[in-house]
Design a protein around this nucleic acid. Sequence first.
DNA 1: TCCCCTATCTTGTCAACGACAAGATAGGGT
DNA 2: ACCCTATCTTGTCGTTGACAAGATAGGGGA
Lengths: 199, 199
Amino acid sequence: MTDRPYHHGNLRSAVLGAAVEVIEQNGPAALSLRDLARRAGVSHAAPAHHFGDKAGLLTALAAQGYELLAGSLAEALAEARGAAPGEAGEELAEAGVAYVRFAVRHRAHFEVMFQPGLYHPDDPQVVAARGRADQALADALQALPDPPAGEQRRLAELAAWSMVHGFAALWLSGALPTEPGAEPGDVARTVIRGRFGSG
Amino acid sequence: MTDRPYHHGNLRSAVLGAAVEVIEQNGPAALSLRDLARRAGVSHAAPAHHFGDKAGLLTALAAQGYELLAGSLAEALAEARGAAPGEAGEELAEAGVAYVRFAVRHRAHFEVMFQPGLYHPDDPQVVAARGRADQALADALQALPDPPAGEQRRLAELAAWSMVHGFAALWLSGALPTEPGAEPGDVARTVIRGRFGSG
DNA sequence: TCCCCTATCTTGTCAACGACAAGATAGGGT
DNA sequence: ACCCTATCTTGTCGTTGACAAGATAGGGGA
């Protein structure tokens, strides 16, 4: 047919990228290995070689997502630390904003990550990456001026994570009756400060 | 084959019920109209008559879910109102607990409701039911001793909804490292009181 | 009583998909 | 020059969603 070489050379990355596009536009349910193969210009069974099966592809996507999330949180935390010392809880609030921004910016990854039924949640790479993201979240809590300890620490982590995750999930699902042009990160910052600004 | 009558008599309800079972056990992605038909003992195309297509079935499920949620919230609010006057924010906290309990108890409905890509979110029945659920949530906020107004009202609603929704979503996704035997409603109450107990 | 009318369910079919097996190709290491 | 492995192709099977056309029941009106 075409003068395409027998070996794609970068099929794994190409398939992952195409998967992100498809999921962003039509959700994970619309994903098809054969469609991704067509987009990459390879035969219908080529993607399976790199990921095993459909769940394997989504597993790779989830692992990549947790890596990205851990990086985003760590970066936001470092930035908030470096900035001029503002009010108490600055770092935690900005980490929360970063969480929401990640969900919106990497919608496809986020949607897959929290639907463990779609992939292999016990995959070693996924577990490791998720551990790094969890640690980044814990670091943000420890940045509080008077970090809670013991049972309180666990509760504070639950509360903070629940709020930002819920905001992100509701935003992505379109359930929030907000202005179309609003920037989700800014709205999230206002909401977070209203509840967590004082500790 | 069997002496089954030509008309099932209650196929619509049977298919909806079977769909809930399947989704609870294997998630929405594992849903198959043909499998539901087999479970109901009818031909493979029978379910489509009642729901049009797969998205139609999930649309009916989402509408049913919003109705159930509105009822659960209203009931919890009424109960908290009727109980001996406790501390401030009692009604809002109990509505939040009811939200989490609904998500866990009706996991299948909850998972579908907040994935609008799976169904027809503009369906009139869905829109109406969702409106009732939204109203129940607003009622819970107005039950505060000093209910916020204007912009503050919107922010408080966002914060409260985000927290309980996030908690429920994280719980269902298995992301929370909690004790296996823990009752999600009780954990949620502790988390909610920690953040919203003082208004 | 008879007929028709409508909702309900069946049967048959098609394209698309996931998964698997077996073979072809390239490119590097020995 | 040879093999060895990863990569990709081709072919196939069972399952699914969607659609079309026909069969069946059950009730309301002539």
